[in-house]
Simulated assay, not measured.
Amino acid sequence: MRDKAPPKQLTFDLPLDPRYGREDFLVGPANETAYGLVEAWPDWPDTVLLLQGPAGSGKSHLASIWATRAHAWTVSAGTLQADQVRHLVSNGALVIEDVDRPADRDESSLFHLLNLARERKCPVMITGAGPVDGFGLKVADLRSRLRLAPRVEILPPDDALLRAVIVKLFVDRQIVVDLAVVEAVALRIDRSLARARDVVAELDRDALGRGRRITKPLALAVLDRLGMAETGDDADGADDEA
């Protein structure tokens, strides 16, 4: 008589609070220049610094580290309003997140804030994905101001950083996995920290639903379901005991 499959467990997609401490930031060739500028503050080349990088690359983490060092307030570009400008600049340092997102973005207020910050020598870190010309800015003076601002870019991670981040993502979820799982994920996903985060979250959900630990065969099955093609390197061991 065939054994009954274990019942699927209910899973709850609870938000995972990211850890944005300095000790939690993993430095590699992709981000060491940006990290160096954060560490070099207040010895910056200009009042404004534009931090660029793809989604999930660590911009918010770096901005949080700098905000702690500079005692800066943090505001989203999408929530900035004209009546907040003077109050925000009065703090002495400011992070403006996601300036590349056009939804509800008040470009006039943002331009006014940058002018006032320069006048009062208030350091401002601005985060955004991609080049300034891709931000879709309609105010020409604001676009010009951001083009002229010193900028530093977080590049796609190298293999070592990608693997280290995958390990950290599991640790953040209090999950212990074999290095074979880390290797399988690293070999099959795009070289993107955002994709690594999404895949680890999916593996966690799947393992909880099955009531099983995350093994390499389970990881490969989930990656197959996500449409990530198998390579020759990670095919070995796919038939190991799950």
Rank of each mutant, 00 (worst) to 15 (best):
D172G: 14
A40H: 04
L148Y: 06
E107W: 03
L37H: 07
D100H: 15
F111A: 05
R195G: 02
T47M: 11
D178Q: 11
A186L: 08
V139W: 04
E202R: 14
D178C: 07
E183C: 06
L37T: 05
V152T: 15
A235E: 13
Q9M: 14
R191H: 13
G78V: 07
K138P: 05
P42D: 04
L155F: 10
W66M: 08
G36W: 03
L49S: 08
V181G: 04
A149D: 03
H87T: 11
T68C: 14
A196L: 07
R69M: 12
P29D: 14
A207E: 05
R118W: 06
F12Q: 13
Q174W: 13
R163K: 15
P15D: 00
R147S: 11
L155R: 15
E97C: 04
G211Q: 03
P150L: 02
G36H: 04
A242W: 06
F170P: 01
G56L: 04
E97N: 05
P7K: 08
K121W: 09
F25W: 01
P15E: 01
V85W: 06
V124K: 00
A129Q: 13
S90I: 05
L137T: 00
A93F: 05
A72N: 00
R145Y: 05
K121T: 14
G134R: 12
L155C: 09
D13M: 09
L51P: 00
Q84K: 04
A160G: 10
A194H: 14
I166M: 09
D240F: 02
D13C: 09
K8G: 08
D236M: 13
L218H: 11
V176A: 12
A72L: 01
R69D: 06
D83R: 13
L148H: 12
D233L: 14
S90C: 06
S60K: 02
A77T: 01
V182Q: 02
G56S: 03
L187T: 10
E107M: 04
V75I: 12
D100Q: 08
E107A: 07
R212C: 09
T74H: 10
Q84F: 07
P157D: 02
M1F: 09
I175K: 08
S57E: 00
A229T: 15
L114V: 12
L223W: 05
D100M: 03
F12E: 14
A242Q: 09
P102L: 06
L10F: 14
L203Y: 07
D159N: 15
G134A: 11
L162C: 03
V139Q: 08
Q81N: 12
R197E: 13
W44A: 02
K138T: 13
E241R: 11
R151Q: 14
A186T: 05
L50I: 09
R118I: 10
H87D: 10
V185F: 07
I96L: 14
L161R: 00
M228W: 10
P123G: 01
A229Y: 02
P54A: 12
P131Q: 04
K138V: 12
V182M: 06
P156T: 01
R105G: 00
A235I: 11
D224I: 06
A70V: 07
W44V: 04
